[in-house]
Structures are given as C-alpha cells and as structure tokens.
Design a protein around this nucleic acid. Structure first.
Lengths: 238, 238
DNA sequence: ATAATCTTGTATATTAATTAACAGGTCTGG
DNA sequence: CCAGACCTGTTAATTAATATACAAGATTAT
C-alpha cells in the first residue's frame, strides 16, 4: 500500500537542487515524500546498532524497489563509497540535512482542542527534531493549563512568541470559522509553513507552504479498498 | 501542494472496476486518493446549500486541474447530465457509494495512549461515516474509563467485539513491540483494513489492507520545503 | 589470484499520472 | 433563432514516476 494526503492536492512547489557534483536536478515530489520515511527507518536501524545497510535491505523494509531508493538518493549524490553499502551513521545526518532537520525545527500548535492536545502530547515530534515551543487557544478554561510542561497561552501572544523564538512552522487545529484569519496572523508574524488540520482552503501568499491534513482520509482509503476486496463483483482482475 | 504518506510506500493493490456503462477500468491509485477529498469538499458545499458545482469550481477549490477531476470521475461514469454541472445532492451519495461509506463503516481503536485517545476524541469520524465502536488497551488504569461515552476495554475482548459488531477496520496506536502480535490478532478476528500508527512494518496476508500513518512526516515535508524557500542558494529555478 | 557475490550509481525503458484538446450538449440574452 | 459562454465526457499528448539493466568497485572464499 502507499501514501496519501493533502500533499497530493494542489500545485507542486517543484524544487530544483544542485547536488555535490554540481549537477542540477529537479527533485520529484514523490521522492521528497519518501525522504522522511527513509530517515525514519534509518534512525530505527541506527538505534538498533546497525552500521551498514544496503539499498536492497532498506528498500525491502519499506516495501519499495531498491532501484527506486537508489534513484531517490541519486538526486543528492554520493552517500556511499563505490561498491559498498550505505553507512548508517553517515546517511542519517546527510538525510537530516537534506530534509532540514539537521538542527531542531521548533513549531507551535494553535488550537488546543482534542486534536491540538493530541498533537502536543505526541512525544515523538521532539525525538524527530521538532520541539514543540508553544500552544495557543482562546478558551479561558484552557489558558494556563499545561500540556507536557508547556503552558497554553492566549492567541494574542502568538506573534510575540513566533518572533522571539524565531518559529517557522505552525500546526492549526482551530475551528474552521477562524482558520483563515489565524493563518494570516501566523504568516504576518513570520510563519512559513502551516500544517493545516482544518477543512479550510487557506488562501495565503505563494511562498507559504501549506500542508493540508485530513484524518478521515485514511479511513476512507481503507474503506474503498476493503470494500472491493470483500465484494469481488465490483472488481475485475484479468 | 499535495499528498504524502505511507500510502505511497509498498505494493499497490491495483483495483479494476466496471462502470455503469459496462466498461472496465483500472482505477489509478492517485485517483483513489483524491476521491475522499472530493467527497469531503462536496459535503461542505452541500451543507452550505450549494446545489450545483462545475468541475472547474470544484477543482479550483482543491487546487487541482478541472481536467483531472473530470478524468477521475470518468472512471465511474455518468455523474451529470450532458452539458450541465454536477448536481451536489446526487454526486455526494454516488461518491459515498464508490468510496464505501454509503453505509456507516464502524471501526475500533487499539491502544488508548495519547494518540489513541486523540483519535477517539476526534468527533468528525462519526460525521464522516466512521462510528467508533470500541477502544482497547491493556493498562489497568485506563480500562473502564470512558472516551466519548465509550468504555476502554481490555485487549482480550477485541476478538469478540470484532465478531459481534462485524467490524472491518481498526486503528492501532500500540507500542511497537506488540504491534505485529496485535495486528495478527485483529486479522484473525476478521479485521480487513489496518490503520497503522506504529512505526512497524506489519507482515500480514496479502488481502489485508494496511495504511501506515506517520505523523512527523507532515512536519518533515514542511521543513524540507520551507528550508529551501528560505535558503534560495539550495534551489535553482531556471 | 580469481570466481562468485555483494555493492552503488546511472542511463534507458516502461508504465503511470497529469494535462490539453475538443466534440457535443445546455443555457441565456438579444 | 442564433451567438456566446458555459458545461461534461473522452481521447490524445505530455510529463512524471517507477522499474530494468548494467558497468564498475568491493569483498570473500577457495
């Protein structure tokens, strides 16, 4: 099975990159999407004490073809000595740099409802290089309470926190009605990437990256496929 | 911007479908991925009282090309009278049937940690046709407590609930160590689709649909793109 | 030393997905 | 009644993504 999200929808910010050999490539979106999965798996291997991994092994564990993995890596160049498998301890930081998590990337969560709280409680973000630096909501009952040691602040504080801590990424889990308004506020304060959990199509300047996340999409995809496996009359495989 | 996840990784269960005109198509995975987004948007339009929508309007609101939307719909056939835009009240149930949510699709959540609780608390699943029918965990402190009126039950009860309520879909948010074991248990009890929030590559029979979800992936994609927009020397656009 | 078996990088071929183009149908205003 | 502006469904063209193939280096065993 394979991937799915808002990342599929909308204009693709095609990125060109110059690799270490000075050759220019347009990195396909499909490749960009796989980079975090490679990194994720490599970190697991690293933690397990694995020092070397071949494209074949790594690809197999991700259910993709080894050639595709090599093809993906090829855009960035030179991850291994010729004829030798990849060195995990070398590949991890290389991928971290490419993905942009070589230094911690702080982010904030705006909207501390159930979904917002869940995001805040998800400890793995920190481990994966994304320390949570602020939680904001306008509900007086929530303001002042803490999640994972971080105090929920009123939304009016957002701009000053963003500027003070130099934050670029924000997740928004606010009610639809205020989503656009808050997104603008975030962008004005310096946010460059928005992780949008609301069902609103945010209209923002072109250089702001928006990633729309829709939880139910996952269930719908599962539903589509399981339904057809259970009702073979809907499918025809020749 | 566009989509991104585990949906991209692994073998694609290519589905063929016979449309209303008796013509057979192989529905591309990319199309399947967009169907829930179409439905989602159409329901919003329906709630807003919109009766008709053209491919151009609908596509624009999703930031895709109208021709792509028509191309996607084309696999399933006849959604509109010739020359006329789509009838929202007609299209919604048609898409619901295609996606398999024309009848409610019950699901369960296994693992009631922070992430599991967040999923359970996300009210929109029910509204979108996925009523939550059970929450399971082995933590004695959690068993018996309620989330949205649903009591957390011990994992040993899973099989009987699945069978009694005829459940096909399950989300798992359990610790990695027990993920494979629990997945097997679910499949044995009748689960056909697994929404996997653990970082484990589940090894299951071929006819079981697995959708791997990785939260941090979203932040990584944002990070990759914002980093390159902020450091133009990494990009070269000609 | 050399054959067998690993490995990666990369060019080529194949397949999939997206976009464009357009034949007809509908509707509105004049 | 006809022109212009919509509309969809469908095929064709284009572009993107994936898979194959293989040259060349490394390693191991004999």
């Amino acid at each position: 099975m394979s991937a799915f999200d808002s990342f599929l929808i909308g204009k693709v910010n095609t990125l060109k990159i110059t690799n270490k050999k000075g050759k220019q490539f347009r990195v396909p979106d499909a490749t960009i999407r796989r980079l975090p999965l490679y990194l994720d798996k490599l970190i697991l291997l690293q933690q397990a004490g694995v020092r070397e991994v071949s494209s074949r092994q790594l690809a197999m564990s991700l259910d993709i073809k080894a050639s595709q993995l090599r093809h993906d890596f090829h855009y960035f160049g030179g991850f291994s000595k010729p004829g030798r498998p990849y060195d995990v301890d070398q590949l991890v930081p290389a991928l971290e740099e490419i993905i942009g998590v070589d230094n911690p990337v702080p982010f904030i969560v705006v909207g501390a409802g159930h979904l917002g709280q869940a995001l805040c409680n998800y400890a793995n973000f920190e481990r994966q290089g994304f320390p949570l630096q602020g939680i904001f909501d306008n509900d007086p009952d929530l303001i002042g309470t803490k999640i994972r040691g971080i105090k929920i602040e009123p939304i009016e504080n957002i701009a000053s926190v963003i500027k003070k801590k130099n934050i670029r990424l924000a997740a928004i889990t606010v009610p639809s009605l205020v989503a656009q308004e808050i997104a603008i506020k975030l962008v004005d304060a310096g946010i460059r990437g928005i992780w949008n959990y609301t069902p609103v199509d945010l209209r923002l300047p072109e250089d702001i990256i928006v990633r729309n996340e829709r939880l139910a999409t996952g269930l719908m995809c599962l539903s589509f496929k399981t339904k057809r496996l259970e009702h073979p009359e809907l499918i025809s495989d020749d």
